[in-house]
Measured scan of single mutants.
Amino acid sequence: DDWEIHFNNITIRLHGVSEEQIEELKELIKNGAHEEELRKWAEEVNR
């Protein structure tokens, strides 16, 4: 699925990401992940 997530003036566009991966991302954000951590997560997902 395609997703677009907005938070802290950042837009993250995701393509072909599962519901499970979105839940992981929500947890990262909820736990106060920094932009660098989110980038690493996105790189892993996009492999």
Rank of each mutant, 00 (worst) to 15 (best):
D1H: 15
D1W: 15
D1E: 13
D1M: 15
D1A: 14
D1R: 15
D1L: 15
D1K: 15
D1G: 13
D2R: 11
D2V: 15
D2P: 12
D2Y: 15
D2S: 13
D2F: 14
D2C: 15
W3A: 03
W3T: 04
E4W: 12
E4K: 08
E4A: 07
E4S: 09
E4I: 14
E4P: 01
E4V: 14
E4Y: 13
I5V: 07
I5D: 02
I5Q: 04
I5R: 04
I5S: 05
I5W: 11
H6I: 13
H6C: 12
H6D: 04
H6Y: 09
F7E: 01
F7P: 00
F7K: 01
F7N: 01
F7S: 02
N8Y: 06
N8L: 11
N8V: 07
N8E: 08
N8Q: 11
N8A: 11
N9M: 15
N9D: 07
N9C: 14
N9E: 07
N9L: 13
N9K: 07
N9T: 10
N9G: 14
N9I: 10
I10L: 13
I10Q: 05
I10A: 04
I10V: 08
I10Y: 05
I10K: 06
I10S: 06
I10H: 07
T11C: 05
T11E: 03
T11P: 01
T11W: 09
T11V: 10
T11Y: 12
T11M: 08
T11N: 06
I12S: 05
I12P: 02
I12L: 13
I12F: 05
R13K: 08
R13E: 03
R13I: 09
L14P: 01
L14T: 02
L14V: 09
L14Y: 01
L14H: 01
H15C: 09
H15R: 11
H15M: 08
G16C: 14
G16D: 08
G16S: 11
G16P: 03
G16I: 10
G16L: 12
G16M: 07
V17H: 02
V17P: 13
V17C: 05
V17R: 03
V17S: 01
V17N: 01
S18T: 12
S18W: 03
S18H: 05
S18D: 03
S18R: 10
S18G: 05
S18M: 04
E19F: 14
E19C: 13
E19N: 11
E19K: 14
E19S: 11
E19T: 11
E19Y: 13
E20S: 14
E20P: 04
E20T: 09
E20Y: 11
E20N: 09
Q21P: 00
Q21C: 06
Q21G: 02
Q21E: 05
Q21V: 11
Q21T: 08
Q21R: 08
I22K: 08
I22G: 02
I22L: 10
I22H: 02
I22R: 05
I22D: 00
I22Y: 06
I22F: 08
E23Y: 12
E23A: 12
E23Q: 11
E23L: 12
E24H: 10
E24D: 04
E24A: 09
E24K: 09
E24M: 09
E24Y: 11
E24T: 07
E24W: 08
E24P: 01
L25R: 00
L25D: 00
L25T: 00
L25Y: 05
L25Q: 00
L25C: 02
L25F: 13
K26V: 10
K26C: 13
K26E: 05
K26A: 07
K26R: 12
K26Y: 15
E27D: 08
E27P: 00
E27K: 12
E27A: 13
E27H: 09
L28Y: 04
L28T: 00
L28Q: 01
L28P: 00
L28F: 03
L28I: 05
L28G: 00
L28K: 04
I29Q: 01
I29V: 06
I29W: 07
I29D: 00
I29S: 01
I29P: 00
I29C: 10
K30S: 07
K30G: 03
K30V: 05
K30N: 06
K30Q: 07
K30R: 14
K30T: 04
K30E: 06
K30F: 06
N31T: 06
N31W: 09
N31V: 04
N31I: 05
N31A: 12
N31E: 04
G32H: 06
G32P: 00
G32A: 02
G32C: 03
G32R: 03
G32F: 04
G32K: 03
A33K: 02
A33P: 01
A33Q: 01
A33S: 04
A33N: 02
A33L: 06
A33E: 02
A33V: 08
A33I: 10
A33G: 03
A33Y: 04
A33W: 03
H34F: 05
H34R: 13
H34C: 11
H34A: 13
H34K: 13
H34S: 15
E35C: 11
E35Y: 12
E35L: 12
E35D: 06
E35N: 05
E35T: 06
E35G: 05
E35A: 09
E35M: 07
E36L: 07
E36P: 04
E36M: 09
E36Y: 13
E36R: 08
E36I: 05
E36T: 08
E37G: 02
E37C: 05
L38H: 00
L38P: 00
L38Q: 00
L38A: 00
L38M: 03
L38G: 00
R39C: 09
R39A: 08
R39L: 14
R39V: 12
R39D: 03
R39E: 05
R39T: 06
R39K: 09
K40T: 04
K40A: 10
K40G: 03
K40R: 14
K40H: 07
K40F: 05
K40M: 07
W41S: 01
W41R: 02
W41G: 00
A42C: 08
A42I: 15
A42M: 12
A42G: 03
A42D: 02
A42W: 12
A42S: 04
A42F: 12
A42P: 01
E43N: 07
E43G: 04
E43V: 04
E43A: 10
E44A: 11
E44W: 07
E44G: 08
E44R: 14
E44V: 06
V45W: 15
V45I: 12
V45H: 12
V45K: 08
V45T: 06
N46W: 15
N46I: 14
N46R: 10
N46Q: 15
N46V: 12
R47L: 15
R47K: 14
R47N: 14
R47Q: 15
R47A: 15
R47D: 12
R47T: 13
